[in-house]
Simulated assay, not measured.
Amino acid sequence: MIPYLVTVHYRRPDGRRRRLYIPVLLMLLLLSPLVLLAVLGGVVACLVTGVSPVGALRGAGQLLWALPGTRFELEYDRTAVMVSVR
């Protein structure tokens, strides 16, 4: 399943908490010109280095498909960040 929502929890050093909800599909639509340029740059890089572009795209797709359920937590002093992909 492709991820559809990224939740970012942020705790500031003063103790206040923030929560951001980022819809993946909306961000993909808004940034689609940049995504297209990134894919084209990746294909060119694959051809220059001798890596199969189809295999690289397949691997990137599998990585994207495996993202739902991933949680990343980072805490430093009194600041904390947690990223959750659903």
Rank of each mutant, 00 (worst) to 15 (best):
L29F: 15
R58T: 09
R71A: 08
R78W: 12
L34S: 02
V6F: 06
A56I: 06
L20R: 02
R71Q: 06
G61L: 14
L40V: 14
W65Q: 08
L34I: 03
V83D: 01
G59K: 13
V51W: 06
T7G: 04
V8Y: 09
R12I: 02
V83N: 01
L29H: 07
L29M: 11
L63G: 07
Y10E: 07
A38Q: 08
S84Y: 03
L47H: 08
L47Q: 09
P53V: 03
M82C: 11
P23G: 06
V6L: 11
V44Y: 15
L63T: 00
R86T: 00
P68A: 07
S84G: 00
M27G: 10
L34P: 01
Y21M: 05
Y4S: 07
F72Y: 09
V24A: 05
S84N: 01
L36C: 08
D14M: 10
V6T: 08
V48Q: 07
L31I: 03
L25T: 04
R19T: 13
I2F: 12
P33C: 02
L31M: 13
P23D: 01
D14S: 11
R71D: 00
R86E: 11
L36M: 07
M1P: 10
R12L: 15
P13A: 12
V44E: 12
L29V: 06
R11Q: 14
E73V: 03
H9P: 00
